Amino acid sequence: MDMLSLILETVVWTANRDSAPVPSNATLALTSDGRLVLQQPQSQDTEITNLTQPASYASMLDSGNFVLYNYVHNIIWQSFDHPTDTILSSQILLAGQDLISRALETDYSTGIFRLSMQRDGHLVQFPISKSSPSTAYWASGTYMYGDNCLLHLDGDGHLYMLNATGTTNIKNLSDAEPTKEETIYRMTIHVDGIFRVTCLGSERKVADFG
């Protein structure tokens, strides 16, 4: 299997992850009234996004970000704002956001482990059923750096935490790698509860935690 095939088979985001699997004859449509929906024969349309205004067009960016725009070309929704178990190169996990593992490697519904970017500045891993300080099995130790820190994965595989304004690096979690053409990195919380930075395609491990 070549690298392109591996990349194409690597799922990095899931819409409506706890809904029933999508049949092979389903289609994704941007409707005339600006809604992004999943259409299936003999079934009602399923909303993919909750938009506050109609979308005029959509774009799948090379970064892996799926974006909807309004008629004046402003972004009104993007998949990078709604991560499931993965962030990609250039993506940020905001304060108050979680990554939640999938149930199985081939089952993309909600699993049992959570990586939480807490609003107190602490990046913490929990079993999803017991999200309290006493049940955390890994923590970044950054709660003293202030509120609303961010987790950022750079284009060179460098995973680090930023202060609330995004201007100061407060902790490195993985080192940067020499830049390679067309390399995309991902950070995923896996079904085993470990979150790892890997090189998309080869799945070469850069770092793991937990």
Rank of each mutant, 00 (worst) to 15 (best):
V12A: 12
I7P: 03
Y69D: 15
I189A: 00
S202E: 08
T183C: 12
L162N: 13
S202C: 05
F80Y: 13
Y108K: 10
D62P: 09
S79L: 06
H73P: 14
I48M: 15
L4W: 10
L104Q: 07
Y143E: 14
A164G: 08
Q97G: 07
T167E: 11
S32G: 10
H190P: 07
D18G: 14
D45S: 10
T167C: 06
Y71D: 04
Q42M: 06
W77T: 04
M117F: 15
Y160N: 01
I194E: 03
G146Y: 08
R204A: 01
T84C: 09
H73N: 15
V124Y: 00
G146W: 06
V197I: 03
F113Q: 00
L88E: 02
M144P: 07
S101E: 03
T31N: 07
F113W: 06
H122W: 00
A26P: 13
G96H: 05
I87R: 06
T179F: 14
Y145D: 12
A20G: 07
L38D: 07
I76P: 01
D120V: 13
V67Q: 12
A15K: 13
T165P: 11
Y143Q: 10
L61F: 13
Q53D: 11
K180W: 09
I189Y: 00
R186Y: 09
G34L: 01
Q53I: 13
T198Q: 12
A55Y: 09
I76L: 09
S202M: 04
Q78W: 13
A26R: 03
F195I: 04
T46P: 15
L123K: 03
Y145Q: 06
F209M: 10
N25Y: 14
E105I: 03
D156Y: 12
N169K: 12
S43G: 04
H82G: 00
I48F: 10
S5G: 08
T106F: 03
P54V: 08
H82N: 06
H158T: 03
I92Y: 14
V22L: 04
V72A: 02
T135M: 12
T27H: 13
A29G: 08
V206F: 11
I48G: 08
V206T: 02
D107F: 01
A207S: 02
A136H: 11
M60G: 12
H152T: 02
W13V: 00
Y69V: 11
I76S: 02
L94F: 15
I75N: 05
L4A: 08
L159V: 05
D147K: 09
R102L: 09
Q42I: 05
S202G: 12
I76V: 12
K205P: 10
V191W: 01
N70T: 05
L159R: 04
L8M: 09
S63D: 15
T167S: 08
H122Y: 03
F126Q: 00
N172A: 11
R114W: 06
I128E: 01
I100S: 06
L99D: 04
S109T: 04
N70H: 10
